[in-house]
Design a protein around this nucleic acid. Sequence first.
DNA 1: ACCTAAACCTGGGCGC
DNA 2: TGCGCCCAGGTTTAGG
Length: 280
Amino acid sequence: MFKNMPELPEVETIRIQLEKFLTGREIIGVEVRSRKILADGEKNLPGGKIIGVRRFGKVVVIDFDNGYSALIHLKLTGQLVFQGPNLPGKHTHVIFDLDGGKKLYFNDLRKFGWIKIAKSEEVIADSFIGKLGPEPFVGQASSGQAPLTLEKFKEILAKSGRPIKILLMDQTKISGLGNIYANEALWLAGIDPRRAPKNLKTEEIKKLYDSIHSVLKKGIKYGGASDQAYIQPSGEEGKYQEHFLVYGREGEVCTGCKKTKIEKIKLGGRGTYWCPFCQV
DNA sequence: ACCTAAACCTGGGCGC
DNA sequence: TGCGCCCAGGTTTAGG
């Protein structure tokens, strides 16, 4: 089962590790095995030295000193692995050759992910990145991206009548939250995922805002959530799945009220876990 | 602006 | 054994 996909904490974990592994290295070549993943432009990279790794929502951006950047979205099953054993493998689609014989592998079982090569100065205007909403967690020193302040969060919620969980996952409104952490944050805040955002009380909004930061921080602390698809660039698995509050706990007794069973419903076509007693 | 459903893919799990 | 079906979820696209 591929339940645990890269959301903000997983991608932030990847960013932190890649920054450590890659900064200062020169790129020698790029081997593209699948044009579905990387359409073109990789010829602009060789000769460039990696100067930093940024993250915009769930997108990783590797910056080179020759004015170009690689934008990478892992979607559901993408991996970025530095110097892994048994690689390249069946699902390796792009290989970045670095100096000293080092390699960075892009693996993706389902091939939903993508890599785009763009001029560094055009990254924030990219057709995907340019549409992202503010960030609940700005990892890098300066991404050029607006942080999600409580005031901004209130504004976003004030206009919306769609279920709060769907709004939280809308990347054009707020970037970085996916299905796991949206479920987790709503449980922690004690809010029914079907509620209309515009009807939330001021104190509920504040609690949800704090809960979003709390679950993301915890996710990053544990290096993300792994099942099979997600691994860190180091090849290690994340540990957040051992700390799920509500995600994947259908039929289990809620750890909050200790009496109600967690239910699973569909919202926006996605699995939604919640406690009917604690979340009102 | 909103919604739903299908599409993009693969493989694990399950029923038969 | 193994076939057929469902499910997983980030995002796009088509259609209402």
